[in-house]
Structures are given as structure tokens and as C-alpha cells.
């Protein structure tokens, strides 16, 4: 990943913006039994997460910390994975 990929972005050119919900295969909702499950990025009470959620009853099957490839949240500090120096308490 280049250092700029998640620090500096181009202004988007689209007319309207959407959040894409990616369908998840092979899972069933334990609350209502539906198989209409999707995974997508959310702002959650404790910050940015990916949710696996039943689209019928809205039960959240999983709330996951985003993986790097989820690009969520869009911005990510360049030093996010670095160790803290001793001066910073590391």
C-alpha cells in the first residue's frame, strides 16, 4: 500500500454517493431465519466497523473490526501499525 492511498484522496466525480452492501452467501439469520445477509461498512457506537447483518430483521450477526482491504474508514494514519516510541509510552 502506498503511503498516499489512505491519506490523500482525489475529489470524487460522481453525482450522488452510495454505500455498497455486499451480499454474504451461505449464512442464515439466527433471529428470523432469512438468508438475506450482507456485509458493509458502518459508523458504530464504538467507531468504524464492518457489519454482517440480516437485511430483513436487522439483527447483526457480527460486528467486525475492518480488515486493511476494507479501506474503512477511508483515512488511515501512516503510522497506524507502528510501535509507540518510549517517549510516547511504548
Amino acid at each position: 500500500m502506498g503511503i498516499n492511498d489512505r491519506m490523500i484522496f482525489l475529489t470524487p466525480g460522481k453525482d450522488e454517493m452510495y454505500v455498497t452492501k455486499t451480499p454474504v452467501e451461505g449464512r442464515t439469520c439466527p433471529e428470523c431465519g432469512s438468508d438475506d445477509i450482507a456485509r458493509y461498512p458502518i459508523g458504530w457506537v464504538r467507531g468504524p466497523r464492518m457489519v454482517v447483518k440480516c437485511q430483513r430483521c436487522y439483527h447483526s450477526l457480527e460486528v467486525q473490526r475492518p480488515a486493511v482491504e476494507d479501506n474503512w474508514p477511508p483515512f488511515r494514519a501512516a503510522t497506524y501499525d507502528w510501535d509507540a516510541s518510549p517517549a510516547e509510552g511504548g
Binding site: 491519506m7 490523500i8 484522496f9 475529489t11 470524487p12 460522481k14 454517493m17 452510495y18 454505500v19 458493509y40 461498512p41 458502518i42 459508523g43 458504530w44 457489519v51 447483518k53 447483526s60 479501506n71 474508514p73 477511508p74 483515512f75
Partner: peptide
């Protein structure tokens, strides 16, 4: 749970 399109008014991107 809040859904915000990246690059939109509600989730603008650096260096916005």
C-alpha cells in the same frame, strides 16, 4: 448503525 458514502458531504476525504 450509520452508513456514510466515502467522498460524500457526510464523509469527505483528506485533504478536504
Amino acid at each position: 448503525q450509520v452508513l456514510m458514502p466515502p467522498g460524500s458531504m457526510v464523509l469527505s476525504l483528506p485533504p478536504a
